[in-house]
Amino acid sequence: MAWPMSCSDRSVLVDGTGIVAMLYALCELFSQYRSDDLAKTYHALRDFTGEYAEENAFFAVID
C-alpha cells in the first residue's frame, strides 16, 4: 500500500495498512482535540509498531 498524500516512496504490506491508517487518524484527531486519551492511544500504537519489520516505513508513509 502506498499513501497517496505522502511524499515518501515507501510502501507497506497489507497487514500494515490498518496501523498506518490508525496512526494517521490519531495524529489528525489529536491536532484538533488535544486529548490525553488520544495521545496515550497514539503512543501505545507507536510502541506496538516496534514488533513489525516495517516500522520505519509506517512513519515514512505518514510523515
Rank of each mutant, 00 (worst) to 15 (best):
M1D: 01
M1T: 07
A2Y: 06
A2D: 01
W3Q: 07
W3V: 15
W3P: 00
P4H: 04
M5C: 04
S6D: 01
S6R: 00
C7V: 04
C7R: 07
S8Y: 03
S8N: 00
S8K: 02
S8I: 01
D9R: 09
R10H: 13
V12G: 02
V12S: 01
V12F: 08
V12P: 01
L13N: 14
L13C: 13
L13Q: 12
V14Q: 12
V14W: 10
D15R: 13
D15Y: 06
T17S: 10
T17G: 09
G18A: 10
G18T: 14
I19S: 07
V20E: 13
V20T: 10
A21M: 07
A21K: 13
A21T: 15
M22N: 06
L23C: 07
Y24Q: 05
Y24C: 04
A25S: 07
L26T: 01
C27P: 00
E28K: 00
E28A: 11
E28V: 11
E28M: 08
L29Q: 13
L29K: 15
L29S: 11
F30L: 11
S31L: 14
S31G: 11
Q32E: 14
Q32A: 12
Q32N: 10
Y33C: 04
R34N: 13
S35D: 11
D36V: 08
D37Y: 08
A39D: 01
A39Q: 07
A39K: 09
A39L: 15
K40P: 02
K40F: 14
T41P: 06
T41V: 09
Y42E: 05
Y42R: 12
Y42F: 15
Y42C: 07
Y42Q: 09
A44D: 08
L45V: 09
L45F: 03
L45N: 00
L45H: 00
R46S: 09
R46D: 06
D47E: 11
D47C: 06
F48R: 12
T49N: 03
Y52D: 05
Y52K: 03
Y52M: 08
Y52A: 11
Y52Q: 06
E54R: 12
E54A: 11
N56T: 06
N56S: 05
A57T: 02
A57I: 01
F58A: 00
F58P: 02
F58S: 03
F59I: 14
F59N: 09
F59W: 10
F59G: 04
A60F: 09
A60M: 00
V61F: 01
V61P: 00
I62V: 15
D63G: 15
